[in-house]
Amino acid sequence: MAFIDDFYMITQEDLEDIKESISTQDLPTAVNTIKEVLEKQDLVELNIGVTGESGSGKSTFVNAFRGLGDEEEGSAKTGPVETTMEPEVYPHPKYKTVKVWDLPGIGTPNFKADEYLKLVAFERYDFFIIIASDRFRECHTQLAKEIMRMGKKFYFVRSKIDSSIAAEKRKKSFDQKKTLDIIREDCEKGLRKIGIEDPVVFLISNFELGSYDLNLLQERMERELPEHKRNVLMLALPNITLEINEKKKKVLQENIGKVALLSALVATVPIPGLSVGMDVAIVKKEMILMIHPCRSSVKDLGRPLKNSKV
């Protein structure tokens, strides 16, 4: 039964629908309900728009978020000048419904946020990552305000933190936590000056993705996504911090219980071979999820997992 291969993540709402169908419908109809639930899971898309000025590290972030290096097969093009002239989609190498979009650079003299969002097909994205490699400028706030006006979420990311830390390490008085606090406060102060109330800035190194604010960014995105997309995001994140790994473990453990219930429900349907065929397919899918975790970014491969809070 090919439809079983569409199994992905079962939400509590899905289980309630299935139980309701079992109790109120004839069994063949209930089987069709289960089939629809399984097929629906594989259609859940998460579209992430990554934008910022040319040279800010947009494309490298797209690659790091997907666990790829800049020169690996399927990676976004990177370079010292703007290489993205129109929206380019990069599916996650494992979770194909997670799509990270490398958007054209902002910050040209004639930049207009409303026209830009129309150009990149604003409606397709679940949220935006707005990246700056030093200070945020008026083009960033123009874009953020237009995104807010249209009712979507965005997150400010200050990239290239590893370079900033390396420069400060030459000072005898170097204190990493103090340095990070100063950078964050400076970015947030600058955003307030140009019209953003209560800004939150996440400090990220594309080459050491687990070293700074990845956990904080993940927690914020997780809170603001609906449940079915929240699970997709969590499983797609690189396995480079203890916090993320623990959350992935929890998601998978919860799904095991749901899978067991689903299997029990299917077992009540008197169709020869249905229960065995479904159990084999579901177990196969769950094993793939558990034993083939998402890769981390290239420089983090082989390193011990980190608690990234500083």
Rank of each mutant, 00 (worst) to 15 (best):
Y125I: 07
D26M: 13
E197G: 06
G107C: 07
L38E: 03
V120I: 15
R137M: 13
E20G: 14
D162L: 05
E222H: 12
A167E: 14
S173D: 13
L103M: 05
K249C: 07
L103T: 04
L274T: 08
L225N: 00
N110V: 08
R158P: 02
K169D: 09
E219R: 11
E208H: 14
D175C: 07
G49S: 01
L103K: 00
V280D: 12
W101R: 02
Q25L: 15
L180E: 02
M221V: 06
E71S: 15
S275D: 12
I182S: 11
S23Q: 15
E168R: 12
H292W: 06
F122Q: 03
L301N: 05
P109F: 09
Q25W: 11
L225M: 04
I291K: 13
I194L: 12
M234G: 09
A281T: 07
F207C: 09
V200M: 09
L68Q: 05
F3V: 07
R137C: 09
L235P: 06
F174D: 12
S211F: 14
K58N: 06
T29W: 06
E197T: 10
P104D: 08
M148T: 14
V157L: 03
Y212S: 03
I22Y: 11
K177A: 14
D300G: 09
S54V: 04
N110Y: 09
T179G: 08
V310E: 15
G257M: 10
L103R: 01
E224I: 03
T24V: 14
F207H: 12
P80S: 12
N47S: 11
L209H: 01
E36W: 06
L252E: 02
S205E: 02
A64F: 06
L237F: 03
H228A: 08
E88P: 07
G277M: 05
K177C: 07
P91M: 05
M287N: 10
T51L: 00
T108W: 05
S133L: 04
K96W: 08
K229M: 02
A113F: 04
K306S: 02
E16N: 12
V44I: 01
D175G: 10
F128D: 10
F127I: 11
E224A: 03
K96I: 08
V37G: 00
L301Y: 09
V44K: 01
D134G: 09
H140F: 08
R149V: 12
K40D: 15
A144C: 01
E243D: 14
K284A: 06
E39R: 05
K19A: 15
D162T: 06
